[in-house]
Computed example of a mutant assay.
Amino acid sequence: MLQMMPPAAESTMVRHLEIAPEYAGQRLDNFLLRELKGAPKSLIYRILRKGEVRLNGGRVQPDRRLSAGDKLRIPPVRLGERIQPPLRPPPGWAERLRDAVLHEDRELLVLDKPAGLAVHKGSGIDFGVIELLRALRPDEPFLELAHRLDRETSGCLVLARTPEALRRIQEALRAGLVEKRYLALVCGYWNHGKREVNAPLRRNVLRGGERMVEVTAEGKTALTRFQPVSLFKAASLLSADILTGRTHQIRVHAAHVGHPLAGDEKYGDSAFNLAMAERWGLRRLFLHAHSVTLALGGREVAVSAPLSPELKMVLDRLATGTAGPAGPAGQGDN
C-alpha cells in the first residue's frame, strides 16, 4: 500500500511513497496531480523538470508510467502559496454533463461528451470534463480520464472510477483490445468501399506557426479503417475504427486520402466547410465517437452515443437535397 507522510506535513516535509499495485500503469504527472490536490500543472512540471521528484532514486519524465513497488520522492510543496482561488464552472456545463452519462457502474463512467468541451483544463481553458465532473461529484474517491477526445469531437468518453480499472483500461488500449468506432462526414463521394489507411503520423510539426500532425515516414504507426455508411453527392458519412490512438488520427488520415472531414478548420477544405455551413447548416466538426467496447475483469462493456440533433439534421438535409437556413459557421453544438 502507499506509504506517505501525514497530510499535515505535506507542505514542509519530503514524502516518500511506495506505489501500490492498483496505481501501476498510471502516468506520473497524473499521479502527482492527484497527490498534490490543487497544484497547478505548471508546478507539477516544474518540480519534475528541476529533478525534485525522484523515482527509484533517479530523475524522471512526466509521462513515465508507474510500476507496483516503485519508490517515489515528492519534495516539499507549499500549495497555498502557489495556487489561485478556485474558479467557478461556466453556467450550464455541469448540468449538461450530469445529463450526459451513458453508462455507470462501480468501475466505469461513460459520457456522451459534448462538442466544444475539452477533456481537461489547460492552454487558457479553466475547466474540462474531468474538472467539471469532480466539482459535480466532490465525494467521488477516484475519477480519472481513461483516454481522450479532441475538444471538437463529441461522443463516448470513458473515465475510470478505481485505480485498478484505470490500469486495466490503459493496458487494453495499449494492446489494441478496446474497440472505438467513430462517425465522420467527409468531403466528396467516397468510392473506395472499405479502406484501411496505414500511414505513420508525427505530431507537433510547425506549419505557418501552427502545431500540426502530418503523415511522414518518421512518424509513429497509425492505422484507421474506414467504411461507408451513407453516400451523398456532396459528402459521405463513414464509420472509422482506429487501431491506434494518435492525435488527430482520423482527421489527418481522411485528409491524406483526399476526403477531409466536414467542419475541420485545421486539416480540412475551407470551401467545402463554407458550403457545409451555409447550405447544409453544419456549425462544428462532424466527428462523433459513436461507440466503445472494452473487456474489463471478465465482462464486456459496450456503450454507444447517438448523434446529436444538429448532426442528424445535416444528414437529413444531405439525404433529401434540401438546403437549410445558413447558420453561423465555426460554432459548436453547445
Rank of each mutant, 00 (worst) to 15 (best):
M4V: 08
M4H: 11
P6K: 03
A9S: 11
H16C: 13
H16E: 15
H16T: 08
P21A: 10
E22N: 13
Y23A: 11
F31N: 10
F31R: 06
L32K: 06
G38R: 02
P40G: 10
S42H: 01
R46P: 15
R49T: 08
E52C: 07
G57I: 06
P62W: 02
S67H: 11
S67F: 03
P76H: 07
P76L: 01
R82C: 05
R88I: 03
L97G: 11
R98G: 14
D99L: 02
D99E: 13
L108I: 09
D112V: 01
K113G: 11
A115Y: 00
G116D: 05
F127E: 08
G128S: 03
I130A: 03
E131V: 10
E131A: 05
A135D: 10
R137S: 06
L149A: 09
R151S: 05
G155D: 08
C156G: 12
R161D: 06
E164T: 15
L166R: 07
L166I: 10
R168T: 14
Q170G: 12
A172M: 09
R174W: 02
A175G: 13
E179C: 14
K180M: 13
R181P: 15
C187W: 02
C187E: 09
Y189T: 12
K194F: 02
K194G: 15
E196P: 10
L201N: 11
R202D: 08
E210D: 14
V215S: 12
T216N: 12
A217E: 15
K220H: 13
T221H: 09
R225G: 14
R225I: 14
F232K: 01
H248V: 12
H248T: 13
I250M: 05
V257L: 10
V257T: 12
P260I: 03
L261E: 08
L261P: 15
D264A: 05
D264W: 00
G268N: 06
D269N: 14
M276F: 04
A277H: 01
L285E: 07
L294G: 11
A295V: 15
V301L: 07
V303G: 13
P306N: 03
E310A: 07
K312W: 00
L315E: 01
R317T: 07
G321M: 02
A323R: 06
A323Q: 07
A329S: 12
